Computed example of a mutant assay.
Amino acid sequence: MALATSLLQPLLSKQQQYLNFFFNHLNLEEVEKVLQVCLRSKGLLVLTGVGKSGIIAEKIAMTLISTGTRTLYLPAINFLHGDIGGFGEDDVVLMLSKSGQTQELLHLVPYIHNKGSKIVAITSEKESSLSRASDYQVLLPVEKELCPFDLAPTTSTAVQLLFGDLLAIGLMTEKGFSIEEYARNHPSGSIGMKITNQVADLMKAGEELPLCKPEDRLVDVIVNLSNKRCGCLLVVSEEKRLLGIFTDGDLRRALEKEGAAALENSMKELMMKNPIVVGPHELAHTALKKMQEKKYVTMAPVVDENEVVGLIRMHDIVHEEL
């Protein structure tokens, strides 16, 4: 026991020193500016990162959601596989990277800016490429990692969590998020318990649905894909039976593979068969879990008695503050 204490006490003192360095050098004006950007946002806050920073980004997103801020966590790789199709000028993307040189994040910057979304770089390197390429930046001061080699993310991930909590509670306070609202987000006192909203309450339906026929050529329905702003087309029969789905990501891959010739292909040739489907009377929470269990899936056709009646998107569920 004495040996363990003699080992851990110096480590605890070092971590306290490193965290004090963070508290003493954090630029609160930078944090305040980002807080105001998030407050003014009419869309979603989207958190992303790679490796350990990605894990921290997901945790921060969960805290923001539970404290009343509409937020989505997306792994960096998902952006260019169709998910960026739902982004717009009202959304703010917060990118976490200690070095600010993470290539997967730098690669996303022009595509996110092209959608009109704002980017916030959260790094621990002042003159990083990500900071220079972003609209806003927050520098999280790190004196040294607790790791004896100064390599394993330890202190750097701790200060990322501290920043996330500061942002979440700052937004919660500014919005006047009440204890009653918090209780509704945490039934029975447990975070993440099932909720009561059904898929039918949130799904796209009727004229909002992006439908097409299997014999349609891509060139003839690509306008529908754009105008419906759902991020996909549902391929259906005359009886509205679901045959497949074609997403923004599928469009990008088809054009990369075949170029302009892909536009002459039929939807039957291009669609993905047997997509994940949900029923209109399922809990939205259940639909969200189904999508999260599969890579790159952020939307699901809604089928009732073998007929397509709607489309539910992860974006829609989050927007309802689930």
Rank of each mutant, 00 (worst) to 15 (best):
Ser190Thr: 15
Gly192His: 00
Met193Leu: 07
Gln198Met: 08
Val199Trp: 06
Ala200Gln: 14
Ala200Val: 13
Leu202Asn: 01
Met203Ile: 10
Met203Trp: 07
Lys204Gly: 02
Ala205Val: 10
Ala205Pro: 02
Glu207Ile: 06
Glu208Asp: 12
Pro214Gly: 08
Pro214Ser: 07
Glu215Cys: 13
Glu215Asp: 14
Asp216Asn: 15
Asp216Lys: 04
Asp216Ala: 12
Val219Cys: 06
Val219His: 12
Ile222Asn: 04
Val223Ile: 06
Asn224Ser: 08
Ser226Ile: 11
Asn227Tyr: 07
Asn227Gln: 14
Asn227Ala: 12
Cys230Val: 07
Cys230Thr: 15
Cys232Lys: 09
Leu233Glu: 04
Leu233Tyr: 04
Leu233Asp: 09
Leu234His: 06
Val236Glu: 09
Val236Pro: 03
Glu238Asp: 13
Glu239Met: 12
Arg241Ile: 01
Ile245Leu: 05
Gly249Cys: 05
Gly249Met: 01
Gly249Leu: 06
Asp250Lys: 12
Asp250Asn: 13
Asp250Ala: 05
Leu251Asn: 02
Glu256Lys: 03
Lys257Met: 09
Gly259Thr: 05
Gly259Cys: 08
Ala260Asp: 11
Ala260Ile: 14
Glu264Thr: 10
Asn265Ala: 10
Asn265Gln: 15
Asn265Asp: 06
Asn265Ser: 15
Ser266Tyr: 07
Leu270Phe: 01
Leu270Met: 07
Met271Thr: 05
Met271Asp: 02
Lys273Trp: 06
Lys273Ser: 13
Asn274His: 10
Pro275Lys: 10
Val278Cys: 08
Gly279Trp: 01
Pro280Met: 10
Pro280Trp: 02
His285Ile: 07
Thr286Asn: 02
Ala287Phe: 11
Leu288Trp: 14
Lys289Val: 14
Met291Ile: 05
Gln292Asp: 08
Glu293Phe: 03
